[in-house]
């Protein structure tokens, strides 16, 4: 059987909110390592990889590896029924085609269980090569979300350019153009407010803003976001999940032919 229990159930709610608009159906892989998922959006332009390590849960039992196919919109509907302070338990018995979500209020005076049908999903796993990135930007996640949102009102694509001056986000459209430059700023009171730019090589890449905006749904999960870029490679936008793992979004670039 498979069973996990997460006292901070709101994390799981936030994780689902972060991926449900990007991916319709996905296989969750349960193993002794943890609860993970890899899925592409329907047009295969973006990929999301989630890992919640088994050690991060208050209870985690996985007798043998299990793949659970779920419709993420339906899973999100069920998790929305959990209170923000609720403890969430996910259970699946071997050989059944359902998964059970159990929600316990902190004072244990309300216990709900929701059963959801599992699906058979044909999904292909991609091998993500380890890469040394030419530029890595760490910045406040709310700032990144703001930039993506603001540039969306100007154009459909963002050009991200890292130089020793800093990182420049540019968009252009019918009404005009916008450039937002963020400089390294490590001398802040709180580390979560810092912007750190590690650059081996200057790099400039172009991306569809629609996907970037979708990634920023993960903003409530982490104060900081890490953006890793190399020429002619998908960008990685990573949000840590409080001491448990991460959500990484990979987005293929637009390349001039």
């Amino acid at each position: 059987m498979f069973e996990l229990r997460l006292v901070q159930g709101s994390l799981l709610k936030k994780v689902l909110e972060s991926i449900k608009d990007l991916v319709n159906d996905a296989n969750f892989d349960c193993s002794s390592t943890g609860f993970s998922l890899q899925a592409m959006d329907s047009s295969h332009v973006a990929l999301v990889a989630l890992l919640l390590r088994s050690e991060g849960f208050e209870h985690y039992r996985c007798d043998r590896n299990l793949t659970m196919g779920m419709n993420l919109a339906n899973m999100a509907k069920m998790l929305k029924c959990a209170g923000n302070d609720d403890i969430i338990t996910i259970k699946a018995d071997d050989g059944t085609d359902t998964v059970t979500f159990m929600f316990e209020s902190p004072s244990q005076d309300k216990i709900s269980d929701f059963e959801m049908k599992l699906m058979d999903i044909d999904s292909e796993h991609l091998g993500i090569p380890e890469a040394e990135y030419e530029a890595i930007i760490r910045m406040p996640s709310a700032e990144f979300a703001r930039i993506c949102r603001d540039l969306s009102s100007i154009g459909d694509t963002v050009v991200i350019s890292v130089t020793k001056e800093g990182v420049r986000f540019s968009a252009r459209g019918d009404i005009g153009a916008a450039n937002i430059v963020c400089r390294q700023n490590a001398t802040v009171d709180k580390p979560e407010d810092a912007t750190i730019i590690e650059m081996q090589e200057p790099v400039t890449l172009t991306f569809a803003l629609r996907y970037m905006n979708s990634f920023t749904k993960a903003t409530p999960l982490a104060e900081q976001v890490t953006i890793s870029m190399s020429s002619d490679l998908p960008v990685v936008v990573e949000y840590k999940v409080a001491g448990m793992g991460y959500i990484r979004y990979y987005l293929a670039p637009k390349i001039e032919e």
């Binding site: 047009s43 694509t157 172009t206 569809a208 490679l233 293929a252």
Partner: peptide
Amino acid sequence: GPKQYTITKFFQKL
């Protein structure tokens, strides 16, 4: 304009 590539162009299927 620039062409939108897919992820499968960069990452191989396992």
